[in-house]
Design a protein around this nucleic acid. Structure first.
Lengths: 224, 224
DNA sequence: TGACAAACCACACATTTGTGTGGTATATCT
DNA sequence: AGATATACCACACAAATGTGTGGTTTGTCA
């Protein structure tokens, strides 16, 4: 009955990930109804608990589970949804249907009132962007202080996502622990067969003192 | 049986969110076994499909569902997990147990074998970092081509997250549409009471031709 | 007209899944 | 010694859930 938009888990801390990609119906050849089903699935996956077939039926007002299965079959055929047999809630969005992604635009057509994406080169996956295939265990973040890496495009205040590892290769940008227990982000450089640290800023001298590599720079994020 | 670490959904595009915060057991008063259960739940929620009780039992090697229920009860009492009755897979992590955040480290103590976070300045919330309070519909991404913004620390290949808006303020970095339908990222500048676009690179001249602002730079992301 | 897809429904059945009861063993604390 | 918590197990039952079969209606396209 009228439970529209009620979060499934009462105390959910999950972000609202529901996103109706308004152009998807045309792009992907979805009917409006199919898009509604897909959007509900999106929403619930965003809330961290995919729906059961009967929950979809309830939300969309269908009286038969068979109806939902027809929709799921259609969405599967169109490559937007994947399922596992005989597993409850085993619904997954494909790359194309995922709503955790922000389109990367190449060219944009200026339609009169709105914009139309002309060329979508790909998608930024919000979840994977930092981590790639890493787990949360494997990384930490540093907030950059100072301008010692400015020539590498790493500015004061940027957040650096560091993959924990006690080694790195020549020329990698690494988070290193100095003797005073300070962490610094520098480029790993080799002179002969000894490694040292170099800033990306001519005003800073290379560091030849003892250091310990604690991780390797994976991602830089800057907010404006 | 030995299905350790096998992704649950074969073609899963979901990130591996499994994160055993190694200090959690002490902080939260968890036993090692309880932490293992929690970490498996974390992992599977990260893969977008919370586990059933029997799946937990299978993973951890328990032969009885009752065992798992004992663990869930303990985790619930310790405020790390929430559940719904009679709903399959209805497992949710609380704020404290959630693993969507990456700690931002200030100083780091070098313990003998491992590192200990000395000063956690805050957390990077993976879900909200790009968007803040924006929805997925309000943004798009541009992949930076060229070095015209290099002095602003925006390099070739970086991904720029743009908030859609047809206006901006002086000195904002904006995504602008030029006459040839090309999108470009430049700094909005004012001369008298006319706006034009400026690169952040002395090799590029300012752009005085007609343009249309399509959005404002919110975030820059660079992967290594 | 016929073929086809979309969009529904009913209902039975099998499997999955959560729940409940009642155990055993071990260690710790009082 | 008794109370308590952890750490398991077996088994039965009920509820939730996925599956399968077989329909009806409507519109579109050839």
């Amino acid at each position: 009955m009228g439970m529209k938009n009620k979060p499934y888990l009462t105390h959910s801390t999950a972000p609202e990930r529901h996103c109706s990609v308004s152009t998807l119906s045309k792009v992907e050849g979805l009917t409006p109804k199919q898009e509604k089903v897909l959007n509900f699935i999106r929403k619930r996956i965003g809330e961290r608990l995919p729906p059961t077939i009967r929950e979809i039926a309830g939300e969309l007002g269908f009286k038969s589970t068979g109806t939902v299965r027809d929709y799921l079959k259609a969405l599967q055929q169109k490559g937007l949804v994947r399922r596992m047999n005989n597993k409850s809630r085993a619904l997954e969005l494909t790359e194309r249907a995922s709503c955790n992604k922000i389109p990367i635009i190449g060219t944009i057509m200026a339609g009169k009132p709105n914009l139309a994406y002309e060329e979508i080169q790909g998608y930024v996956d919000v979840d994977n962007l930092f981590l790639g295939r890493l787990g949360f265990d494997d990384v930490f973040a540093l907030r950059i202080k100072g301008d010692s890496m400015i020539d590498a495009g790493i500015l004061d205040g940027d957040v650096a996502i560091i993959k924990k590892q006690p080694y790195a290769e020549n020329n990698d940008i690494v988070a290193a622990l100095l003797n005073d227990n300070e962490v610094t982000l520098k480029r790993l450089a080799r002179k002969g067969n000894k490694y040292h640290l170099e800033a990306a800023n001519p005003n800073y001298p290379p560091i030849f003192e003892e250091f310990k590599i604690i991780g390797k720079l994976m991602t830089v994020i800057r907010k404006y």
